[in-house]
């Protein structure tokens, strides 16, 4: 990029270090996405669990 015109292929090439640079950034992206998605899934699980418990409680109250 040394002053000359910007080229995407040169940018992606990363001066020959493409594998290392892009796998680092890729892993960082995976980590960020995982850390956002996994607590969201966890939240759904917890809510479902609490709901089930409430239902069970209501059922047992009806039958007894």
């Amino acid at each position: 990029m040394n002053g000359s015109e910007f080229s995407w292929s040169e940018f992606l090439h990363m001066g020959g270090y493409a594998t290392f640079v892009w796998s680092s950034y890729g892993l960082a992206l995976v980590m960020v996405v995982f850390n956002i998605v996994s607590p969201m899934i966890e939240r759904k699980r917890v809510i479902a669990r609490v709901k089930r418990a409430i239902k069970r409680e209501a059922n047992s109250r009806q039958t007894s």
């Binding site: 990363m14 290392f20 640079v21 680092s24």
Partner: peptide
């Protein structure tokens, strides 16, 4: 060269 750009992930992490 360009490999140092990993620093922007590595050091903050």
């Amino acid at each position: 060269g360009e490999s140092y750009r990993i620093i922007f992930i590595h050091v903050p992490a």
